[in-house]
């Protein structure tokens, strides 16, 4: 074998070794649009329906069937009021927030608020979240700390989260009832902090006029 051939062979072997080590150690990897190769399929795919899966048996190909009409959830309740039905909601939840305002509940409220509300309302409730800034254009996200919102009853805040308002969609299907009340506690705390530590005017649905005026004076 001539010297150049030897060098070429050595280089080739070195390249192959590097590649093999790279693949085995996970440093080299590549993307594929083809489904993974099944060498020994065993019972990897069994004849059964999976959540959000496909079922050719049904005309619409959905494995997940809609519940029969009138079905009630085993946990919690479906939210009974529509978007505009604030008055009924306020009457129904007149007792106010059923959760105690403990540190644990507030932590949960912060967690759910950051997850579901902060994209638009921002982490502080000021209504300038990143989705609002980059997406909504001339649509306005409400500032949760404004005077009008501070005067809302707990029941009304709960209703707005559950059923939506203006362009805000309803969140009753994604946030549980307990978590929504925890969010209400957390929003109250944000309002209180923004208002210089003053206790929000209400916690049980009624706002006395003297309290509202004090709030507005403080704001000026």
């Amino acid at each position: 074998m001539s010297t150049p051939a030897k060098i070429a062979l050595a280089l080739l072997l070195a390249l192959m070794a590097t590649f093999t080590i790279g693949v085995l150690s996970g440093k080299i990897w590549w993307f594929s649009e083809d489904p993974p190769l099944m060498v020994i399929p065993d019972m990897d795919d069994q004849f059964r329906l999976k959540p959000q899966g496909e079922a050719r048996f049904f005309a619409d190909n959905r494995a997940q069937r809609d519940p029969v009409e009138g079905t009630l959830p085993r946990q919690g309740k479906t939210y009974p009021f529509g978007m505009g039905d604030v008055d009924s909601a306020e009457k129904y939840f007149a007792a106010g927030n059923p959760l105690p305002k403990t540190e644990y509940v507030l932590a949960r409220g912060q967690n759910r608020f950051n997850t579901f509300c902060s994209p638009c309302h921002n982490y502080t409730g000021t209504g300038d979240g990143l989705v609002q800034q980059k997406g909504f254009g001339n649509q306005v996200t409400m500032n949760l700390l404004r005077e009008e919102a501070r005067a809302y009853s707990d029941a009304k805040i709960f209703h707005v989260i559950s059923a939506g308002q203006n362009i805000m969609p309803a969140y009753a299907d994604r946030i549980s009832e307990t978590d929504r009340w925890a969010i209400v506690h957390y929003i109250r705390e944000l309002q209180q902090k923004a208002n210089g530590g003053m206790v929000p005017p209400t916690s049980n649905g009624t706002v006395s006029s003297t309290q509202s005026t004090t709030v507005s004076k403080r704001m000026q």
């Binding site: 093999t20 693949v23 085995l24 996970g26 990897w29 590549w30 993307f31 594929s32 649009e33 083809d34 489904p35 993974p36 190769l37 060498v39």
Partner: peptide
């Protein structure tokens, strides 16, 4: 080595 999951499955990126 080639039929391990980290070779066959990792990097599966369907459109």
């Amino acid at each position: 080595f080639g039929m391990r999951n980290d070779v066959t499955d990792v990097g599966y990126r369907p459109q």
